[in-house]
Simulated assay, not measured.
Amino acid sequence: MMTPERTENFEHRIPEGDDRTRRVCGTCGFIDYQNPRIVAGSVVCKDDKILLCKRAIEPRLGFWTLPAGYMELGETVEQAAMREAQEEACADIEIDRVLAVYSVPRIGQVQVMFRANLMSDFKPGPESLETELVAWKDIPWAELAFPTVVWALTHFAETRDQANFAPFANPPGTEKLTT
């Protein structure tokens, strides 16, 4: 028979040598670190069009996004981006390069976005209602799910014809969205 997890021995305190309050087991001293989660995704292109996925899940059900999601243990960030394209759009992609790394501390995320090329057909996966290749002029800006999708698309547009560039970070003036 399984015993339920006991949490009554945990307390919030600053462990020795640390600088912030953590959950610490009062019995054994185990520190329960709570760290940001990594999201991996891509701006996926084919013939000057961008692959968008309409979300079939919350948050932001019914809004458009780029193929992206949480990284799993045991995979590289590139593998995570390729898996997410497969899960959300049944698409095989080829990673070109890192486009941006966004910090979203308000929700405990670091988002690594790549530029990628579509290498296969695509269709909605289990997390998508629809998938479409969209021309830049047809992007449904008012229906995009998250600010980081807008940032990634904007940064992609700035580098569309560049082979080499430094990866982007959060745009200036976006502090309210990230804290």
Rank of each mutant, 00 (worst) to 15 (best):
M2V: 14
T3I: 04
T3P: 00
P4D: 01
E8Y: 15
N9W: 07
R13S: 15
I14D: 05
P15T: 06
D19M: 09
R20C: 11
R20H: 13
R23D: 09
C25I: 06
G26N: 07
C28G: 09
G29E: 07
G29Q: 05
I31E: 13
Y33D: 10
Y33Q: 05
N35T: 15
N35K: 14
R37W: 10
R37T: 12
I38N: 06
V43C: 06
V43Q: 02
K46F: 09
D48H: 11
D48Q: 12
K49L: 12
L51T: 01
L52Y: 12
I57G: 03
R60E: 05
L61S: 12
G62V: 10
F63Q: 14
T65P: 03
L66K: 02
P67Q: 04
A68E: 06
G69D: 03
E72N: 03
G74Q: 08
G74D: 07
E75V: 15
T76L: 04
E78R: 09
E78L: 06
E78F: 05
A80Y: 04
A80Q: 08
A85I: 07
A89G: 10
C90K: 13
A91Y: 00
I93T: 14
I95L: 08
I95F: 01
I95P: 01
D96R: 07
R97P: 01
A100K: 00
Y102G: 02
S103N: 07
V104E: 11
P105S: 06
I107S: 11
I107L: 11
Q109C: 01
V110Y: 03
V110A: 01
L118K: 04
M119S: 10
G125W: 09
P126T: 12
E127R: 14
E127K: 14
L129V: 08
E132T: 12
A135I: 03
A135Y: 05
I139Q: 01
P140E: 11
W141M: 08
W141H: 09
E143H: 15
L144P: 02
T148P: 07
V149R: 00
F156I: 00
T159V: 05
D161H: 10
Q162A: 02
A163P: 00
F165N: 02
F165V: 00
A166L: 08
A166T: 08
F168V: 00
A169I: 03
N170H: 02
P172T: 15
P172F: 14
P172H: 14
T174V: 00
E175Q: 09
K176C: 11
T178L: 11
T179D: 15
